[in-house]
Protein backbone atom coordinates (compact mmCIF):
# COMPACT_ATOMS: atom_id res chain seq x y z
CA UNK A 1 0.00 0.00 0.00
CA UNK A 2 2.81 2.30 1.04
CA UNK A 3 4.51 1.53 -2.19
CA UNK A 4 1.40 2.36 -4.09
CA UNK A 5 0.83 5.60 -2.11
CA UNK A 6 4.35 6.65 -2.90
CA UNK A 7 3.86 6.06 -6.54
CA UNK A 8 3.69 9.35 -8.42
CA UNK A 9 0.14 10.57 -8.86
CA UNK A 10 -1.51 8.14 -6.46
CA UNK A 11 -2.83 9.87 -3.26
CA UNK A 12 -1.82 8.47 0.08
CA UNK A 13 -4.19 10.73 2.16
CA UNK A 14 -6.92 13.31 1.65
CA UNK A 15 -4.50 16.27 1.31
CA UNK A 16 -2.49 14.37 -1.16
CA UNK A 17 -5.74 13.49 -2.94
CA UNK A 18 -6.72 17.19 -3.21
CA UNK A 19 -3.23 18.07 -4.42
CA UNK A 20 -3.25 15.34 -7.03
CA UNK A 21 -6.79 16.14 -8.23
CA UNK A 22 -5.72 19.77 -8.65
CA UNK A 23 -2.73 18.61 -10.60
CA UNK A 24 -5.05 16.28 -12.51
CA UNK A 25 -7.20 19.34 -13.38
CA UNK A 26 -4.12 21.08 -14.66
CA UNK A 27 -3.29 18.03 -16.70
CA UNK A 28 -6.86 17.94 -18.04
CA UNK A 29 -6.66 21.61 -19.01
CA UNK A 30 -3.32 21.01 -20.67
CA UNK A 31 -4.78 18.05 -22.50
CA UNK A 32 -7.76 20.13 -23.68
CA UNK A 33 -5.43 22.88 -24.84
CA UNK A 34 -3.28 20.33 -26.63
CA UNK A 35 -6.35 18.86 -28.34
CA UNK A 36 -7.55 22.34 -29.34
CA UNK A 37 -4.09 23.25 -30.64
CA UNK A 38 -3.96 19.97 -32.55
CA UNK A 39 -7.38 20.65 -34.10
CA UNK A 40 -6.35 24.18 -35.09
CA UNK A 41 -3.04 22.91 -36.49
CA UNK A 42 -4.94 20.22 -38.36
CA UNK A 43 -7.27 22.84 -39.84
CA UNK A 44 -4.33 25.07 -40.77
CA UNK A 45 -2.49 22.17 -42.40
CA UNK A 46 -5.71 21.19 -44.16
CA UNK A 47 -6.18 24.68 -45.51
CA UNK A 48 -2.51 24.87 -46.50
CA UNK A 49 -2.73 21.56 -48.30
CA UNK A 50 -5.92 22.58 -50.07
CA UNK A 51 -4.45 25.93 -50.99
CA UNK A 52 -1.42 24.29 -52.51
CA UNK A 53 -3.60 21.90 -54.44
CA UNK A 54 -5.56 24.76 -56.02
CA UNK A 55 -4.03 25.87 -59.30
CA UNK A 56 -3.95 29.60 -59.99
CA UNK A 57 -6.52 30.47 -62.61
CA UNK A 58 -5.14 31.28 -66.06
CA UNK A 59 -7.34 32.84 -68.69
CA UNK A 60 -7.15 31.65 -72.33
CA UNK A 61 -5.80 35.07 -73.23
CA UNK A 62 -2.94 34.71 -70.75
CA UNK A 63 -2.32 31.20 -71.95
CA UNK A 64 -2.18 32.36 -75.56
CA UNK A 65 0.15 35.17 -74.54
CA UNK A 66 2.49 32.70 -72.89
CA UNK A 67 2.43 30.63 -76.06
CA UNK A 68 3.29 33.57 -78.25
CA UNK A 69 6.17 34.46 -75.97
CA UNK A 70 7.71 31.02 -76.43
CA UNK A 71 10.17 31.66 -79.26
CA UNK A 72 12.44 29.57 -81.47
CA UNK A 73 11.61 27.15 -84.25
CA UNK A 74 13.18 24.18 -82.49
CA UNK A 75 11.11 24.76 -79.44
CA UNK A 76 7.97 24.92 -81.58
CA UNK A 77 8.83 21.75 -83.51
CA UNK A 78 9.63 19.91 -80.34
CA UNK A 79 6.30 20.97 -78.91
CA UNK A 80 4.41 19.86 -82.02
CA UNK A 81 6.17 16.51 -81.94
CA UNK A 82 5.33 16.16 -78.29
CA UNK A 83 1.66 16.95 -79.00
CA UNK A 84 1.53 14.40 -81.79
CA UNK A 85 3.18 11.73 -79.66
CA UNK A 86 0.93 12.28 -76.69
CA UNK A 87 -2.07 12.42 -79.03
CA UNK A 88 -1.04 9.15 -80.64
CA UNK A 89 -0.85 7.57 -77.21
CA UNK A 90 -4.33 8.84 -76.48
CA UNK A 91 -5.60 7.79 -79.88
CA UNK A 92 -5.80 4.23 -78.69
CA UNK A 93 -8.27 5.40 -76.05
CA UNK A 94 -10.77 7.54 -77.95
CA UNK A 95 -11.85 8.89 -81.32
CA UNK A 96 -9.49 11.37 -82.95
CA UNK A 97 -9.49 13.49 -86.08
CA UNK A 98 -6.39 14.29 -88.10
CA UNK A 99 -5.80 17.46 -90.13
CA UNK A 100 -2.59 18.93 -91.48
CA UNK A 101 -0.75 15.94 -89.99
CA UNK A 102 -1.96 16.96 -86.54
CA UNK A 103 -3.99 14.62 -84.38
CA UNK A 104 -6.88 16.51 -82.79
CA UNK A 105 -9.03 15.21 -79.99
CA UNK A 106 -11.72 16.60 -77.74
CA UNK A 107 -10.58 18.12 -74.44
CA UNK A 108 -7.14 18.88 -75.91
CA UNK A 109 -5.86 22.40 -75.40
CA UNK A 110 -6.58 24.27 -78.64
CA UNK A 111 -3.89 26.83 -77.90
CA UNK A 112 -1.30 24.05 -78.25
CA UNK A 113 -2.62 23.13 -81.71
CA UNK A 114 -3.35 26.51 -83.28
CA UNK A 115 0.08 27.00 -84.88
CA UNK A 116 0.23 23.49 -86.30
CA UNK A 117 -3.25 23.63 -87.82
CA UNK A 118 -2.48 26.63 -90.03
CA UNK A 119 -4.65 29.64 -90.64
CA UNK A 120 -8.35 29.47 -89.88
CA UNK A 121 -10.95 31.26 -92.01
CA UNK A 122 -12.64 32.95 -89.08
CA UNK A 123 -13.03 32.78 -85.35
CA UNK A 124 -16.18 33.63 -83.39
CA UNK A 125 -15.71 34.57 -79.77
CA UNK A 126 -18.54 33.76 -77.41
CA UNK A 127 -18.02 35.07 -73.91
CA UNK A 128 -19.56 32.80 -71.32
CA UNK A 129 -21.99 34.40 -68.94
CA UNK A 130 -20.68 35.84 -65.70
CA UNK A 131 -16.99 35.96 -66.53
CA UNK A 132 -16.75 32.20 -66.86
CA UNK A 133 -14.24 32.51 -69.68
CA UNK A 134 -14.51 32.53 -73.43
CA UNK A 135 -15.60 29.91 -75.95
CA UNK A 136 -14.21 30.08 -79.48
CA UNK A 137 -15.48 28.69 -82.76
CA UNK A 138 -12.58 28.30 -85.21
CA UNK A 139 -13.74 27.78 -88.78
CA UNK A 140 -11.28 26.06 -91.13
CA UNK A 141 -11.95 25.27 -94.79
CA UNK A 142 -13.50 21.85 -94.20
CA UNK A 143 -14.03 21.60 -90.47
CA UNK A 144 -14.85 23.62 -87.36
CA UNK A 145 -13.49 23.40 -83.86
CA UNK A 146 -15.46 24.78 -80.93
CA UNK A 147 -13.77 25.24 -77.60
CA UNK A 148 -14.88 25.71 -74.02
CA UNK A 149 -13.02 27.26 -71.08
CA UNK A 150 -11.85 24.88 -68.37
CA UNK A 151 -12.04 25.85 -64.71
CA UNK A 152 -8.33 26.66 -64.95
CA UNK A 153 -8.93 28.93 -67.95
CA UNK A 154 -7.59 26.56 -70.61
CA UNK A 155 -9.06 26.73 -74.12
CA UNK A 156 -10.20 23.11 -74.49
CA UNK A 157 -11.80 21.47 -77.52
CA UNK A 158 -15.49 20.70 -77.09
CA UNK A 159 -16.55 19.84 -80.65
CA UNK A 160 -14.86 19.04 -83.95
CA UNK A 161 -17.26 19.18 -86.88
CA UNK A 162 -16.41 17.86 -90.36
CA UNK A 163 -18.30 19.89 -92.94
CA UNK A 164 -17.38 18.47 -96.35
CA UNK A 165 -15.94 15.36 -97.98
CA UNK A 166 -12.40 16.69 -98.38
CA UNK A 167 -11.75 15.51 -94.83
CA UNK A 168 -12.47 12.15 -93.23
CA UNK A 169 -12.32 10.44 -89.88
CA UNK A 170 -9.09 8.58 -89.08
CA UNK A 171 -10.97 5.39 -89.89
CA UNK A 172 -11.75 6.71 -93.37
CA UNK A 173 -15.40 7.81 -93.25
CA UNK A 174 -16.32 11.08 -94.99
CA UNK A 175 -19.44 12.97 -95.98
CA UNK A 176 -19.72 11.27 -99.39
CA UNK A 177 -20.53 7.96 -97.67
CA UNK A 178 -23.73 6.48 -96.29
CA UNK A 179 -25.08 5.09 -93.07
CA UNK A 180 -24.22 1.55 -94.24
CA UNK A 181 -20.60 2.59 -94.80
CA UNK A 182 -20.43 3.96 -91.27
CA UNK A 183 -21.77 0.73 -89.78
CA UNK A 184 -19.41 -1.33 -91.94
CA UNK A 185 -16.43 0.65 -90.61
CA UNK A 186 -17.44 1.24 -86.98
CA UNK A 187 -19.63 -1.76 -86.30
CA UNK A 188 -23.04 -2.39 -84.82
CA UNK A 189 -22.40 -1.03 -81.35
CA UNK A 190 -23.98 2.41 -81.78
CA UNK A 191 -26.76 4.51 -80.30
CA UNK A 192 -29.48 5.77 -82.57
CA UNK A 193 -31.21 9.16 -82.56
CA UNK A 194 -33.82 10.33 -85.09
CA UNK A 195 -31.15 11.89 -87.35
CA UNK A 196 -27.90 10.40 -86.14
CA UNK A 197 -25.96 7.36 -85.10
CA UNK A 198 -23.43 7.74 -82.31
CA UNK A 199 -20.40 5.72 -81.30
CA UNK A 200 -18.76 6.30 -77.95
CA UNK A 201 -15.27 5.50 -76.78
CA UNK A 202 -13.99 6.59 -73.38
CA UNK A 203 -16.53 9.39 -73.18
CA UNK A 204 -15.77 10.83 -76.63
CA UNK A 205 -18.83 10.73 -78.86
CA UNK A 206 -18.52 10.34 -82.59
CA UNK A 207 -21.78 11.48 -84.16
CA UNK A 208 -22.77 10.85 -87.76
CA UNK A 209 -25.59 13.25 -88.53
CA UNK A 210 -27.84 11.88 -91.25
CA UNK A 211 -30.47 13.01 -93.71
CA UNK A 212 -32.05 9.78 -94.75
CA UNK A 213 -29.05 7.53 -95.41
CA UNK A 214 -26.67 10.33 -96.35
CA UNK A 215 -24.16 11.75 -93.89
CA UNK A 216 -24.51 15.53 -93.60
CA UNK A 217 -22.07 16.12 -90.77
CA UNK A 218 -19.60 14.23 -88.62
CA UNK A 219 -18.80 15.49 -85.15
CA UNK A 220 -16.53 14.58 -82.28
CA UNK A 221 -18.03 15.66 -78.96
CA UNK A 222 -16.36 16.01 -75.58
CA UNK A 223 -18.16 14.45 -72.61
CA UNK A 224 -17.86 17.85 -70.95
CA UNK A 225 -20.11 19.62 -73.47
CA UNK A 226 -22.08 16.81 -75.05
Amino acid sequence: MQEIAESPGIPGNIDDFKKVTTQGGIHMKRRKRTICAAILMGMAIGLWGCGNAAEPEVTPEESALDESQASGENQENAQNQENTESSDAQAAEGYFFEANGVVIGVDMNMDDLLDSLGEYKSVFEAPSCAGEGMSYLYTYASYEIETYPSAEGENLIGYIVLKDDTVATREGVDLSMTREDVIRVYGEDYQEAPNAITYEKNGTKLNFILEGDAIVSIEYVSPVVG
Partner: peptide, 13 residues
Protein backbone atom coordinates in the same frame (compact mmCIF):
# COMPACT_ATOMS: atom_id res chain seq x y z
CA UNK B 1 -20.14 39.72 -86.94
CA UNK B 2 -19.68 36.22 -88.34
CA UNK B 3 -22.30 34.79 -86.00
CA UNK B 4 -22.26 31.07 -86.79
CA UNK B 5 -25.25 29.12 -87.99
CA UNK B 6 -26.21 26.19 -85.83
CA UNK B 7 -24.54 22.90 -86.66
CA UNK B 8 -26.93 20.11 -87.68
CA UNK B 9 -28.21 18.09 -84.71
CA UNK B 10 -28.93 14.41 -84.53
CA UNK B 11 -31.99 15.02 -82.41
CA UNK B 12 -33.88 18.29 -82.21
CA UNK B 13 -36.34 17.13 -79.58
Amino acid sequence: ENVPEGRPLGDYR
